[in-house]
Design a protein around this nucleic acid. Structure first.
Length: 575
RNA sequence: CGGGAUGUAGCGCAGCCUGGUUAGCGCGUUUGACUGGGGGUCAAAAGGUCGAGAGUUCGAAUCUCUCCAUCCCGACCA
């Protein structure tokens, strides 16, 4: 490719809206342009990188017997009614009507579509297991797109779906998919990806893993043990908390004028937050009032609470709803509630296993000291709803957990029979008996992966692409191209490299050296060749590697073969 | 959906508070000349519904209201 013809300009200044490095370089380097919030066009450079990522993904999917298919972006309402998700999924699902007033939607994930396909094509145990995958556009009507290509509304995703006779077969395949995912991220050059246990959320199913690119720009919080054996998303992370019980003291009502927050009450009484109990009120999907009680130094983990309550949605209760049970906001207490109908009191272990806590008195300006759950209250449900904090003890070793940020670049789920049962995706076993297929699903965000590579691999001048996904393999800069010797040498090298199948970008614009170097840095091609009157004096060219200071001179004679072998050497690192 | 910020040439910004010629600056673009190893110099040129609409006013980029868009924090989120 000649730079003089390349579509997509480089920009000197950071775009106003960009906060994170990948967003800045994606715009400044001419990889993509925003069309609307969270909706981007890819320019040739970005398109080439994504294509290469997709090629690696295809290769690994094919190696675990995946068969590529292509399903529609636009889907009819009926299909999603079958799975129940037309109602259960919120506004993130973009719904619209076609010209005949028929309800349609934009696919945000393709379980329904793939089940529609497979249930009519596959009916016998003899055909199982199978896996199909696609690389297709998804649309999610995100409330708040952000961070360039990290969180967008429209994006390209590889999604794969496997179908099995049994859970055991799924589990075995799941392990193979996990391995294939590790291969993919290694081959893309993402050394910072870890797989962690996660919550399966709206997807349903039990076991799931997220592949997280560790990065400060990430939106997810991860807890890891120092040894690396325990890794989990904040949503489901657990810790080996130890609580100690003391001899219960007598319940005592104390005056706490205008002290409503945990911090205020604890300070006022000369205690620490861990000596208090905190009340948080929610409304679940059945309009039950949920009184969540937790020790004052913890936060309620809404994912854990949702899972415990089996309530897909949960929202904070407002003050009126809190008063419904006789609780007083700011001084709410599980004691002396006047109305316990449609009320569930869910108590965290931190409260159940501690003693003599300060809790509200359900009376303005008053609290109780020395609350002891088993002595003072009945009719509660005790479970674990606490959010892990940095430094909490690792559940495996007890070592303090470290908090990290991560970008979710992929995920895998053991779906089970959630979709096959609701949508009648069955097979006949040896005895002619019908069973729902056991499903797994496996996703990777392509554009998000590209952005994550920038977050991992860049310097002050631009991205540093791994050879496996770089938009080009060699970047030729011809300095002083008006000189015939430079021009002819560069043109000849460009043609020769291309004829050998090497992907080369050639800066033929005749710009100043510094100008071309800065552009080359933003394009981030790993190998750079400089041809100038100076290098031609010794009948050679200058060779450099992106991100490495040292340069070397290479004689012109054996350039093409040397570059061929250097590139294949470099590519081997990503096989 | 709640809180905050921003919107002026392709990009980045000044001007607005305190209304008043023809709306500026840098980068980029075009033409020419010089220059030639880290965004060079000089000269000339093109490029604007000042986010949109309404209002106040003799007069609005500037004041008021409504709306829209984008970003940040939160809520939400396979």
């Amino acid at each position: 490719m000649r730079m003089s013809k390349l579509v997509g300009r480089r920009i000197k200044e950071d775009p106003r809206d960009a906060q994170i490095i990948s967003h800045k370089y994606i715009i400044r380097g001419g990889y993509a342009r925003m069309v609307s919030a969270g909706i981007y066009s890819l320019l040739p450079l970005g398109s080439r990188i994504c294509s290469k990522i997709e090629t690696i993904i295809r290769d690994e999917m094919n190696s675990i017997e995946g068969q590529e298919v292509l399903m529609p972006v636009v889907l009819p309402r009926e299909l999603w009614e079958e799975s129940g998700r037309y109602k259960s999924v919120g506004e993130e699902l973009l719904r619209f009507k076609d010209r005949n007033e028929k309800d349609m939607l934009l696919g945000m994930t393709h379980e329904e579509a793939v089940v529609h396909l497979i249930r009519s094509e596959v009916n016998s145990y003899k055909q199982l297991p199978i896996m199909v995958y696609q690389i297709q556009t998804k649309y999610r009507d995100e409330a708040r797109p952000r961070a360039g290509l990290i969180r967008v509304r429209e994006f390209t995703m590889k999604d794969a779906y496997s179908f099995h006779e049994t859970q055991e077969c799924l589990e075995a395949y799941y392990e193979r998919a996990h391995k294939a995912y590790e291969n993919i991220f290694r081959r893309i050059g993402m050394k910072n990806v870890v797989s962690i246990k996660s919550d399966s959320g709206m997807m349903g199913g039990k076991v799931s893993h997220e592949f997280m690119a560790l990065s400060e720009a990430g939106e997810d919080t991860i807890f890891m043990s120092p040894c690396g054996n325990y890794k989990a998303n904040k949503d489901i992370a657990v810790a080996a908390w130890k609580f100690t019980k003391e001899t219960p003291k007598e319940l005592e009502k104390v005056h706490t004028p205008s002290k409503e927050t945990i911090e205020e009450v604890a300070t006022f009484l000369g205690l620490k937050p861990e000596n208090t109990g905190k009340a948080v009120f929610y409304i679940d999907c059945n309009e039950n009032l949920i009184f969540a009680m937790i020790r004052g130094d913890f936060e309620v983990n809404e994912t854990k609470l949702k899972n415990y309550l089996k309530s897909p949605s949960l929202r904070y209760a407002n003050d009126d709803e809190i008063r419904r049970c006789g609780a007083v906001p700011g001084y709410a207490s599980p004691l002396s509630l006047t109305n316990r109908s449609k009320l569930r009191i869910v108590v965290d272990r931190s409260v159940a296993e501690s003693s003599n806590l300060v809790v509200g008195a359900n009376e303005k300006d008053y609290h109780f000291k020395n609350f002891n759950l088993e002595r003072d209250l009945t009719g509660t449900e005790i479970t674990e709803i606490a959010t892990v904090r940095a430094g909490d003890p690792c559940p495996l070793t007890g070592a303090p957990l470290e908090e990290k940020r991560g970008i979710e670049v992929g995920n895998i789920f053991q779906l089970g029979t959630k979709y096959s049962e609701s949508m009648n995706c069955n097979y006949l076993d040896k005895n002619g008996k019908s069973h729902p297929m056991v499903m797994g699903c496996y996703g990777i965000g392509v554009g998000r992966s590209m952005a994550s590579v920038i977050e991992l691999s860049h310097d002050d001048y631009g991205p540093i692409w791994p050879m496996s996904i770089a938009p080009y393999q060699i970047h030729i800069c011809a300095l002083n191209i008006k000189e015939e010797a430079v021009k002819s040498t560069a043109e000849k090298l460009y043609a020769n490299l291309q004829s050998k199948g090497i992907e080369v970008i050639f800066d033929d614009r005749g710009e100043k050296a510094g100008f071309m170097f800065n552009d080359a840095d933003l394009i981030g091609v790993p190998f750079r060749v400089i041809i100038s009157p100076k290098t031609l004096e010794t009948n050679s060219v200058e060779f450099g590697i992106r991100g490495v200071k040292e340069k070397q001179m290479i004689p012109i004679e054996d350039l093409v073969t040397r570059f061929q072998s250097m590139i294949s050497e470099e590519l081997k690192k990503y096989q």
